[in-house]
Design a protein around this nucleic acid. Sequence first.
DNA 1: CTGGGTTGGTTCATTATTCAAACCGTTGGT
DNA 2: ACCAACGGTTTGAATAATGAACCAACCCAG
Lengths: 259, 259
Amino acid sequence: MGTVSKALSLLDFFSRSQPEIGLSELTRASGLNKATVYRLLSDLQIHGFVEQTGARAYRLGPAVLRLAAIREATVPMRQIVQATLDRLSDTTGETSHLAQIQGDRLVTLAYAYSPAHGTAVRMEDAAVTPFHATATGLAVLAFAGPAFCDRRLAQPLPAFTPDTPTDPADIRARLGRIRASGYSESVGGFEADVHSLAVPLFDATACIGAVAVATPKSRMTPALRARIIAALFDAAHDIVALWGGFLPDELQRLWVDAV
Amino acid sequence: MGTVSKALSLLDFFSRSQPEIGLSELTRASGLNKATVYRLLSDLQIHGFVEQTGARAYRLGPAVLRLAAIREATVPMRQIVQATLDRLSDTTGETSHLAQIQGDRLVTLAYAYSPAHGTAVRMEDAAVTPFHATATGLAVLAFAGPAFCDRRLAQPLPAFTPDTPTDPADIRARLGRIRASGYSESVGGFEADVHSLAVPLFDATACIGAVAVATPKSRMTPALRARIIAALFDAAHDIVALWGGFLPDELQRLWVDAV
DNA sequence: CTGGGTTGGTTCATTATTCAAACCGTTGGT
DNA sequence: ACCAACGGTTTGAATAATGAACCAACCCAG
């Protein structure tokens, strides 16, 4: 294994559950010699990739912030998921879209249509959509953490259609079912004749959005529904890989069970 | 120069003005042999630190996003600037604070008091402050780009004191002077007896906030004002270094001229 | 159409760098 | 006081990295 690879692989041991690691712990985890680990850490430290906290631990350094900002400016998340959404729409024959939390709002970041039918659910760029009334919004509420969810459900929950859930207790029950299944579903919750399925997306630390497929109610069948769910799982894996994010192990287990 | 240092130093050539670089260009810029650069890029690519775009250029890869997210979760910006704000307040004997753009708002992220006097300008955690009426807000308006500035000035500009600037043309003139001097000043613009000075802060791509010192009007003197301005420049350097950001060269020239 | 200059990419004998066993001083627990 | 952990250091031997020379592909001026 090359020297550069050894050094970079040390960085991979840092995670959100273990953001600080000591020299001896890294030695054990990596299987490298302690002198080797020390020297590699020193090189990484000189370039700002790690920094030492106190006398007994290392953590990731500020250089990664600068590079991430350049990467983000170069390849905005929207652009790099477009190909994945195009494939998702081709696979399912329906409209796909991706929504992301931006502050207190859920914003449609990207979408794709399929040419498979003369009609399709129509999307709008940068549309702000409600959390409680959409499949993407419900996926986010289910997985973005209790504080976020409580804040959302404490705000007014207007009805957009006769089928919009507006009772916080009812919505919480649905969120429980979404957490149990790993995906969300909205039938006419935001637009009367639209049936949507969605799964949550995570960056390295938290749920930050969701990816969905929307179909006219009249076109949804049990077979299409199953195909959409499987395709959403694949798309979510691809998107978080591109984003440098993660999918919680328990969520992936739910997805395996659902296919 | 060690192999790991060579590889990491290649990453430093990527910038917001040059986010994509070819193999031969990197060879010229780094002074290394093309075969060496190629092999180092391959190692970086295997670990996700760079990726190839098309056939002729490389750019930073998704691994930096994951590491930056871990770093951000570990060391939130607020925590790491607190020590700098403490020193800024000690140096000036007055209240210092840092505000950051969050969507369409300016939010106080951190602040520090000085024990030098019995009275001090009081701050609030997570306070949302107006752009047009505060020194931090004016610093951000001046340096955050015309689109951002136009959007802000197109919104209502309420008066908080008789000294609040509310005429967009007047504010634009002030912003011109701020750009010429490199720092902003508000005298009673938001609270009647507060005199504040601020400088903008940048991440790797844009102005994202400002750092300020606020003093009761009655305590400001020419000597204190000069000391505050110099201390703000030092604090800004420290903060953007911690954040993996940058300060535009022309802004630093203005600051050198102002001291 | 052709030749020249650029590009990304490859090879392998030589050389520079890395490696890791053995060691050090410090700290904390028993 | 002793022991086991920690971070950190040294240096002769071993290994990985180096880079001159080369390749194929592409682009453009003549």
